[in-house]
Structures are given as C-alpha cells and as structure tokens.
Nucleic acid binder design. Structure first.
Lengths: 232, 232
DNA sequence: CGATTGCTTGAATACTGTCAACTAGTGTGG
DNA sequence: CCACACTAGTTGACAGTATTCAAGCAATCG
C-alpha cells in the first residue's frame, strides 16, 4: 500500500479498473475488466474533447488526468484533477461537456458506454454506486465554486495544496514533500488565477515559511496556521 | 402555460411534485405525491442547513430556492437558484453539504429519504432518471466554475442574466422584462462579486444600452452583442 | 413617523492581471 | 558534441479591475 513514487502503480483497490465500484464482487469485477481496456497515455494526451460524442466511460488507473472546460479564446477552467479510482463521464449522454487530458504519463481504463450500461442493467447495486459517486462529485463541485468565488489567491492555493495532499494520502502515497505533477499553468487554470499570480503567491508563502518549493514538489510546513482563518 | 407573474403557479409538469421524473406513469406519480407533502415557505426561510442530517429530499414546486455554501465568516457562495421542477439533495447521504433558503415565497414538495428510497427501489427507471438529473447538475456546475474562475464581472452578469432568462422561458414564463426576484447580494454571492460591483456593472450595462433596470426586473435589450465576445 | 434594509454611487485602496524580461532546463539538429 | 530554440518558471513594473469604506436615497416595516 505504500507507494513512494508519484505515478507508481498502487495495490489500492481504487487503482484497479472498476475499483471505483466498492460493492462489486470478484466475479463481477473480472467480467467488468474484460469489457473494457487499459489505455496508456503520455503527458498532455487528450482522452476526449468537449463537444465530441461521448462513446466511452473512463476510470483513471495510474497518473493524473485534468478535466477542463474551454472557451474559444484560450480561456480554460480545469474543474478537477482525476486520480486513480476516479471515474469520468459515467453518466454523460450525447456529447462530452468537458475535455480531459493526461497530466504526465497515465493509464486509463476505458469501456464503451453500451457495454457498461448492459453490465449495470443486470446489477441494480451498480446504479446506486454511481449515484453515490456523482453525489460526491457534486459536493466537490460546490467546494470548488466556493473557492473560486469567495477565496483570495493565497487561500485558494493553501486549500488546493492541502486538499491535494489529503487525496494523495488517502491513496497511500508519500506526501511529505507533496508531489505536484501539474504545471503552474494547470494550477492557475484550476484556481481561476494567472500563472504569475500562482508563482508570486507560492513565493510569498515560501518566504513566510509556510511551504518549501522543490522541483515538482512542495513541502507543506505551516499551512494549518496560515489556513486557519480560511478553514475555521 | 402562460404564467405572467413570476411566482405564479404553473401548469407545467415540472411544477408538480414529482414532476422532475419525466418517465413516471400517472399511477406512480399519484403514489409518490402521497408519500411527501407540500410545504410553503416565506421569503428567506431556510429549508435545510449545511451540516445538518439530511433526512428529506426536496423538489421546488413554486418560487425560487437559493442553494448556498457558507463559511464561518459570513462568506457565502450561492451555487444555484432552484426553480420549479428542480430537485434538491436527492442523493445526499448523511449530512447536508449545502444550505437552502427561499428567495421570496416558495412551495416545496418534501419527502422523507427512506420513503423515496423505498419508492425507487421498486422502480429501476427512477434511478436512471436520478442519474440523468445529477449529470445535468454536474454539467451546470462546470459552467459555473468556468464563469467564476474565468469571466470578468460584466461577462458574469450577462451570462447569468441570459441563462436565467432561458431557464424561465423554458418554464413558460414571461421574460420580456426579465423577473429578477433575488437581491443584489444574492446575485453577488452567486457570481463571486460584491454587491457594489454588481450594482456598478449593471449600471454600466444600462448606460451602454444593453439592459434596462426596472424594480424587480431587468429588460435585456442588446445582450447578444455585448455577450458575443464572451460566448463565441 | 422613525428605523431598518436594500440599492446606488463616489473615492481610495488593494489585489490580481498584463506586459516584459530573465533564467534554467530540455530537446533538436547541425 | 555543441549551438540553438523552445518551454516552464520566476520576478519586476505598471495598469486595471474589483473591493473596501463611506455616504445618500428609496422603500418597507413596525
């Protein structure tokens, strides 16, 4: 369970295809896996694009996948960073409402929508799992809307980093120097800031002793104190 | 179908209790209605509070209900304005993640969670409806995240007003002088702005001839042209 | 009728964005 | 192998937008 490297394969159930369905039996899981395939992606590869017909469901197995919405003029809002165990577009009908791209190397389990629908139709409990997963996704979205609308840059970054740390820790990763595989631009597009503001704010936090910036990682030193007024 | 006043009762199916489930038969609908009750609220009444145990599901029948998330220090983010036909907390387990309050007089259909779960357990198609509704909610949330993170005040307001108009129009309401029942503070807390910025930006749009501000209403005159760069 | 609340506007401030420059690291091609 | 180009990250200077603080007005309510 203790995977030290960031993109390392993980014995965690969540990291297996179909691992997002916690109530599936072993037989179900085996069958589910035969219905889909594991697809490797390299950094920046696009899994699917906003507006394209949604033919498949996805589940991240390894790595990080950025989910984002764009407008014609290069503006981009990354709505979430998907980690192993997270599912994408499970209930999308018709066309994709968002795009997805690999943040670094990633492995994704993909299953045609009809096959999954057929699989689920025999198993009522699967639908319940999906509803629960979507409820979590909605709750997360509410959190993010609050952050985007009501937090200043510094608070956005601290909350982002601590949440990211907590998610990785839940996957059993080593988070002491917290791995931050996404670029500054990705962070900016996620928090509704510019690259420059992200850099500057991180630098400010480092000068204050709250964090330590390392290549590809950030050590969280005193975020509780700094975040206290924000999270109380 | 032509309801002229804003909070007027509406013959639209969506405005009936259970009307959000479009594939329910008449018999199902009748039974569903007996399981819940219609509860009237007056302006500013709280339906449920973030952190409280989630014992019921809600569906707006009449009026507008604001869904919001707060932090201890008075900061508030209104994540959505629910209209007749919209459902609330249908899949929430445990505790409410958000609060809800009536924006003006409202009628809400409320059903205990267990009763609805029991009702749904005999009817597999209900779960599919719920999944579809939640998928729509997630897509909406993505839109709002983009607006909060990547649009300036003026664009936020124009997009908000046009979306609001489109939603009311879909309910068969008269939207020529667009009814705006929520306060400036509500709008500000929805768009991630301050009351003052909302006022000033609306005034600017009015001076420019894009809108006309009336008491409780706003007439949209030239939003297409103004919004064109934003929505293209 | 006074008081409260919501809305509006003004002035000053602060934060974030824009533009620009510089560094370091990476990869490419000669 | 090295020169070159390109990208990501960082920092500075400046501009612009949104916030804060403040005050005035109108409408509502007790």
């Amino acid at each position: 369970m203790a995977a030290s490297s960031f993109a390392a394969p993980c014995a965690n159930a969540a990291a297996q295809p179909g691992g997002f369905l916690s109530h599936l039996g072993a037989a179900d899981l085996r069958q589910l896996m035969t219905l889909g395939e594991r697809v490797p992606y390299t950094s920046q590869d696009v899994l699917f694009t906003q507006g394209a017909p949604a033919g498949k469901c996805f589940s991240v197995v390894e790595g990080v996948v950025g989910i984002y919405r764009t407008e014609c003029d290069n503006r981009r809002q990354i709505t979430s960073f998907a980690l192993p165990g997270d599912i994408l577009e499970i209930a999308t009908q018709g066309h994709h409402e968002v795009s997805a791209a690999a943040i670094g190397p990633a492995v994704v389990w993909e299953i045609p929508r009809e096959k999954f629908a057929q699989f689920a139709s025999h198993r009522p409990y699967v639908l319940n799992e999906i509803v629960a997963l979507m409820a979590t996704e909605i709750a997360d979205a509410h959190d993010k809307m609050f952050s985007l609308g009501r937090r200043a840059a510094e608070e956005k970054l601290i909350v982002f980093l601590t949440h990211w740390r907590d998610r990785l820790a839940r996957l059993g990763r080593d988070v002491d120097p917290l791995p931050v595989p996404m670029s500054r631009r990705d962070i900016a597009d996620h928090l509704g800031l510019t690259v420059e503001t992200v850099c500057r704010t991180l630098a400010k936090l480092e000068r204050r002793g709250a964090i330590e910036i390392l290549p590809g990682r950030i050590r969280l030193l005193d975020t509780e104190a700094v975040a206290a007024p924000a999270l109380a």
